[in-house]
């Protein structure tokens, strides 16, 4: 079995230590960094994402896989810059103002990273201004807003308005999700993309960036 397949399979089983060792071996064998990332780590995370979407695995499996991926990417990061490997795209993500639910947001973040996107995590209780300012300052192609409450979901509409006022609406894609959010709501407030789960969110984000 190729070492990259081994990385992918161990990542799917959440074997963080093994993944770290294998990534080091792959580096030592001179396999290009981009190939280790794409065919080893990201390929494994993609399979986990797909299984999560289909309810074949659940949050514990996603978390241990993400943890294993982090062990691998930590080794690759310093080499990636030197090799000129760029992230697929850049995204800022947060849970909207007044809302402290962060489990779903964290999963979306993991899945985005699992697709090779760079993610700026703004945490919870994030104002519309902060989303928009971050997108401007950090050159994000996508703003991802999570809201779990009917009392806070209207902040997403403010994000759309603020992005328009700031003149970046045509440059930035606004993705939304969370318990009370639906496709209809997404259309109603003029946001761009709604998905009901984290793996589909990551697929949609990759589409936007590629």
């Amino acid at each position: 079995m190729s070492i990259l397949v081994e990385i992918s399979e161990n990542l799917q089983r959440g074997k963080a230590k093994v993944v770290k060792e294998l990534v080091q071996q792959a580096i030592d064998q001179g396999i290009p960094v981009e190939q280790i990332l794409n065919e080893g780590l990201l390929s494994g995370m993609s399979i986990i994402g797909e299984k999560f979407k289909n309810n074949e695995v659940y949050v514990p499996e996603v978390l241990v896989a993400a943890r294993a991926m982090n062990q691998g990417t930590q080794l690759l990061k310093p080499l990636m810059a030197a090799a000129g490997v760029k992230a697929v795209g850049k995204v800022c993500i947060g849970t909207v103002q007044g809302d402290l639910h962060d489990i779903g947001k964290n999963l979306v973040k993991m899945m985005l990273e699992g697709k090779g996107l760079e993610v700026v995590d703004l945490g919870t209780d994030v104002s519309a201004e902060t989303f928009v300012n971050t997108a401007i300052e950090q050159n994000c192609q996508i703003i991802c807003c999570s809201a779990l409450l009917t009392t806070t979901m209207n902040v997403m509409e403010d994000v759309v308005k603020k992005a328009t006022e700031a003149g970046i609406r045509d440059k930035v894609t606004i993705m939304i999700g969370g318990a009370p959010v639906s496709d209809d709501y997404c259309k109603k407030i003029g946001a761009d993309i709604y998905t009901s789960d984290a793996a589909s969110a990551a697929d949609a984000a990759v589409n936007v960036c590629s």
Binding site: F52, Y58, V59, P60, I103, G104, D197, A198
Partner: peptide
């Protein structure tokens, strides 16, 4: 559980 399913699966 959340919208996309339970935080733990049948295995746990």
């Amino acid at each position: 559980a959340g919208k996309s399913g339970p935080l733990i699966g049948p295995a746990q």
